[in-house]
Each structure stands twice: as structure tokens, then as C-alpha cells.
Design a protein around this nucleic acid. Structure first.
Lengths: 260, 260
DNA sequence: TTCACTATTATGTATATACATGTTCATGTC
DNA sequence: GACATGAACATGTATATACATAATAGTGAA
């Protein structure tokens, strides 16, 4: 492994089956492949990433090159590095470091109230036209549909309406979401690579009003989240918060991430 | 500059007057100082950062060390690097790469409608208790208070209520915000280091309803943004969107930032 | 068996070096 | 004066090397 220089020709490192297109630099290629394995779930949270020297050998490059990639992944919060032990895929954090929409139990706990939830309905069914709008699912694929009501103390706190793609989250078929909320379950279960939030205000319809114990037409904050992994769509969830509750808070820097 | 090794003693690089505490590594120290100069506005958008070799000489380190810092700053979107020319502080982007709350003119334009706005009121006054709640201002410091109505085509689009701290944005005293909106003016004028958004839903009060041409009590989305620079608070703005309009959209990755 | 000490291991930081890649600028020719 | 050519320059990527640091594993003495 002494002196590699610009070989290009030679045995291509062949890092198992990669669907990645050829990328400009080695750095980017290594970064992309490791990122892909993490975000697709091939390397689940807690998995130990090969040692730097081994990756260097695999890609036929120096440890410094691999080290820089690992440093970036650590900065980005995808891996955790421990001396002597190695580098590990990190446990999925809160929903996002940036937009502070965390697990509802936390949200309620921060108000010093005890959280409870009940499953209003849960069914397994085939995706219809409405579901295809909510999440870009293949037509009539199997989904789990769960509606839960979250309470802070005794009062209703928010309504959660969720569909989960069974194609990409098969374990959801077994979960009944009575003990852990669907949100917490997803958080600990499935790695994701992209999320999209849509936030709007609407007047409560009669159904929501009834469940939440508010007047029909009262202003509500709607937060819809669609989540994907590299394999495809995972889940769509709609939270309905009565408007007289505290809102959402998001903090960030110009670059969208804290440095230093 | 040949072979520096671990000197520690010797002439401290003395990179002008820094209020920074001593940081762990040289890397972090350089990163922090440059970031500070950018975020404080000492190095405004467009400013050319010293060449890597010069910074290396200044800090008494190798170019590689500086290069890594610059690479991070570029990844974070704070600087732009051009070969032969050097590295430059970037023009402030949209309000955020992550949370897609852009300039209102853009927002309206994306709906294929022409944007117009009018200043409902503008005054210079001393901060009261309410302003201290909105923005953590020193008591009775001078602020500019502007209320504008934005229109998409002929219809009211949203209401903007803003206060600007004159202590930290003195140029605001001269601006009347008739030609450019207050948002666009701030965006091009002032570098910021932190922003906090608060999002909630409320029923429209009679004043908002009148200005926006909606019914009193109709659901509205309220987006409040507080922005700081390193020097202190800059501005607080509250946008009120009628709830029957499209909402906000935010997209992101687990780490809060796109890699690769 | 327990505790202290040491060796090993994997990451963390920094260096010097080499060459590639685009830009800009100056130069010389037509 | 217009234009092609090439030198100079600043960044971009990668290498080999060195030593620091933290955590683990192993060894030996009380």
C-alpha cells in the first residue's frame, strides 16, 4: 500500500454492490457509499463501520482520505466515533436537530404534564387515491393506517393520523402502537434520509373538533410530515394541534447548521 | 515555515483582537475566528478572505490545516471559493436553506402572481414592554416599527409586522421600505448568526381580518421570526397568513443538512 | 481476586509534499 | 488593436508521516 498516486486503472476497489454512479472524487465516492449504507438501513444504528485502515485498504487509498470522510460524517451527525472502539452509526436523534418537532411525549413532558395516548383506530388496508396523494405509494400497496389521540394530563393535546408503507416498513404489521406511540416506534425503528414538512392553519372540522374537545371552526395548526428512506416512502403523518396551544419552534444558523 | 511541530511557546499568532476563549485545537480556533468575523459582519458579504498561505503564515501552521477549515466553511455555505481569485464571504442566501421561508416576493412569484406591497405604518420609537417580549432588547432602546401588507395580484397575501433594533441596524433609520420590502432590505443588509421561528395557528382578530380581507375568527398561520447577529438582536417579524393559502414547506435530512 | 500499570489499538490533529485544475494576467504575434 | 499562448497563481485532492489521546485489553503484584 505504499505510494498509490493517480492510478485509475488497476483493480477497482469493488466495495460490494453499489448502485452509485461514478462520482468526481474518491472522497465523494466514499462519502456517498457510506452515507447510502446508513440511510438505506443496510448499516443500522449501532452498527460498527469498518476501521479506517480497512476502508483505506478496501478503496486503495490512504487513511487520511478515509479519515476526512469520517470526520464529515461525524460533523453531519450520522456517525459517532469512539477511540479504540471504532466508528458507529448513530442512533436516530430527535426528528431533526433543526426543526424542533420532537417526539410528542417529550413535547408534552416539557410542559410538565404527563403524556398519554390512545389508539383511535388501526387498520391494515390497500392504498387508495387519497393515500397516493399523502405519500407517493405504488397503487394499492399495503399500508397501516393508525389514528391516535395524544393527551397532556387529561386534556387532548393533538391528533395524529398516520399511514405507514408496509413495503418499506414491514415490521409495522406486528406493532399495535398501544404501548409506544407510532412516532416513537418509527423513530427507533427506521432510518430515514429525507423528510418534508408542510405546515398550515385550518379551522377544525367536526370530527377533529369532537376528538380534541374544541369548537368546530377553531383555528388549528396542521403539521404534515412525509418521510423517505433511500428505499422509498416510509410514512405520512398529520398532526392537528388546537391553535390555543404553544406552537412549534425552529432555531438555526444561516448555513442551516451549527458550526464549531 | 519549515517544520513547525508542537511549539505552543513562541510568538502567539495574534490574529487581531479576538474575544474568543482559547479553544481546543488550532483547527477549531481558526474556524471559530473566521466564522465570528463573518457572522458579526466584520467581514461582510463579498469580502475576500485572506489567502490560505497567508492565513497559514498568520497562524503559524501549514496550508493543509487552513484548507480543511475553509473546506468546512464552504460546506457550511458561509464562503464561496474561486480558484485563482480566493475565497469570499457568501451573499446571504434565502432566509434558510432548510426551512423554506423565503422572501415574500419570491413566495408570491412562485404562484405566478405579481407581488406588491404597501407600508401600512412606519414609526421610530422607544422599545416598550411588548417589544422586550418580542425581541430581547435593552429597555427603551430605539426601534423602527413597520407594518406592511403584501399582495399577490390584487388579493392580500400576508401581513408583516416588524420591529428592527436601531442599535444593531442603524441604517434602518434611513430606509422607508416603500421600494424594497423590509424583509428583502434586511436580507441584503445584515448578516445574521441565529434565527428562531415560532409557528402557530390563531383565529384572525378584527384588525388582521380587516387588512387581509377575511372573516374575523378565520384560521391564520402565524410565523414569527427573531434574528440575531453576534452583536445582539436584529429584528422580530410576525407574518400572518390567511389559513386558506398554501402553507410552509420544510425539507431536510436526518443531520439537518444535505451531504455529498 | 482485585488493583495498578503497561501495551495495544483506533481515532484525532497536524505537517510537508505533490500534482491537478481552473482563472487571471501578461506577453508576443499577426 | 485583437487574439491566441502560456506563465503565475490559488484552490482542490490525495499521499505519507508523525505524534497525541483515549479506551480497551492484558499482565503482574499485593
Amino acid at each position: 500500500m505504499t505510494d498509490m498516486r493517480r492510478d485509475a486503472g488497476g483493480q477497482e476497489p469493488v466495495a460490494t454492490g453499489e448502485p452509485h454512479p461514478k462520482e468526481a472524487t474518491l472522497h465523494q465516492r466514499i462519502l456517498g457509499e457510506i452515507e447510502g449504507r446508513i440511510l438505506s438501513g443496510e448499516w443500522p444504528p449501532g452498527h460498527r463501520i469498518p476501521f479506517e485502515v480497512d476502508l483505506a485498504a478496501l478503496y486503495g487509498c490512504s487513511r487520511m482520505t478515509v479519515n476526512k470522510v469520517m470526520t464529515r460524517l461525524a460533523d453531519a451527525g450520522l456517525i459517532e466515533r469512539r477511540k479504540k472502539s471504532g466508528s458507529f452509526v448513530i442512533q436516530p436523534q430527535a426528528q431533526s436537530a433543526v426543526l424542533d418537532i420532537h417526539d410528542i411525549a417529550d413535547e408534552v413532558a416539557s410542559l410538565n404534564l404527563t403524556h398519554s395516548h390512545s389508539v383511535v383506530s388501526r387498520e391494515r388496508r390497500r392504498a387508495g387515491a387519497e393515500d397516493m396523494r399523502r405519500l407517493d405509494l405504488p397503487k394499492s400497496s399495503a399500508v397501516i393506517d393508525v389514528v391516535s389521540l395524544h393527551r397532556a394530563g387529561a386534556r387532548p393535546f393533538c391528533l395524529e393520523e398516520r399511514i405507514i408503507s408496509l413495503a418499506n416498513v414491514p415490521d409495522a404489521a406486528q406493532a399495535d402502537f398501544a404501548a409506544t406511540t407510532a412516532g416513537a416506534w418509527m423513530l427507533n425503528q427506521v432510518p430515514w434520509s429525507m423528510a418534508e414538512h408542510r405546515i398550515r392553519a385550518v379551522g377544525a372540522g367536526p370530527r377533529e373538533a369532537g376528538l380534541l374537545g374544541i369548537e368546530s371552526g377553531a383555528a388549528c395548526l396542521i403539521v404534515e410530515r412525509r418521510t423517505w428512506s433511500n428505499a422509498g416512502p416510509l410514512t405520512h403523518v398529520r398532526f392537528t394541534y388546537p391553535g390555543d396551544r404553544h406552537g412549534l419552534i425552529a432555531r438555526f444558523t444561516p448555513s442551516g447548521q451549527a458550526l464549531s
